[in-house]
Amino acid sequence: MANVSRLESKARAIRATCLQMAFEGKEGHLSSSLTSVDILVVLYYHALRADPSRADDPHRDRIIFSKGHGCTSLYAVLADRGYVPRAALRDYNVPYGPLPNHPCEHALPLLEMSSGSLGHGLGVAAGILYGLRLKESSARAFVVMGDGECNEGSVWEAAMFAAAHHMDRLVALVDYNGMQAVGRTDEIMGHTSLAAKFEAFGWSAAVIDGHRIPEIVDALDRAPFQPGRPTAIVAKTCVGVSFMENDVLWHYRKISREELDRALAELAETPIHLET
């Protein structure tokens, strides 16, 4: 059973950490990062069958964070979960550091793959699963994607492949925050029916509130929704900081000291790498 209040409290601390990292690292993509926080917390604290002390365990569940630009949330969760030292978060976006602003497997070898170029995670995960099946492993693969990322044709090539090979150990979590780099996703590419699109490609899909921990837990516990079908969880999300909502500017904007203080006060949490 998931301890919902513990996960909720983790998520608040991770949000605060993302804000602090973006400020210290002088890097944008804050909104893209904040919208994924609850999904990542449930994945890493509840769903994944993986042991941080054995990152190369062949039977570990695989996770690919395909929307690489939103990586402060990933790094913060990895640090909180014990995959990387908390102190490393201070070096986010430092040249030659382990935590660049788009995840690089050469900088951080525990990643299943680098990301930053959109539309690759799902297809690579499907290849990984095919290999796992040949090796008779029952490990699963989870891919965290953006809704903007679903503009990429390669996502749908991967979706067809996964359905054709009945990959019911594959779970795509789409962070449906409604925003992409230059505008709203529904205005730019008509992405108003992602779940229906995945279903039409032979997947099972569910639309959930991407910030209600019990809903995320339930969806991940229920996957696969149907045997023989890959699972798409379309998680409707928002930024979670009042003055950043519905503003595409926060895809780019670097946060100022004043804005950071305001956001942290609103969350009433301390970033995990500042805790004493």
Binding site: M113, G123, V124, I128, Y130, L134, S154
Partner: peptide, 14 residues
């Protein structure tokens, strides 16, 4: 695109 990405996934699994 999937031809190459699937191969990348398989290579990652050895």
């Amino acid at each position: 695109a999937q031809l190459v990405n699937a191969a990348a996934g398989l290579a990652r699994e050895g």
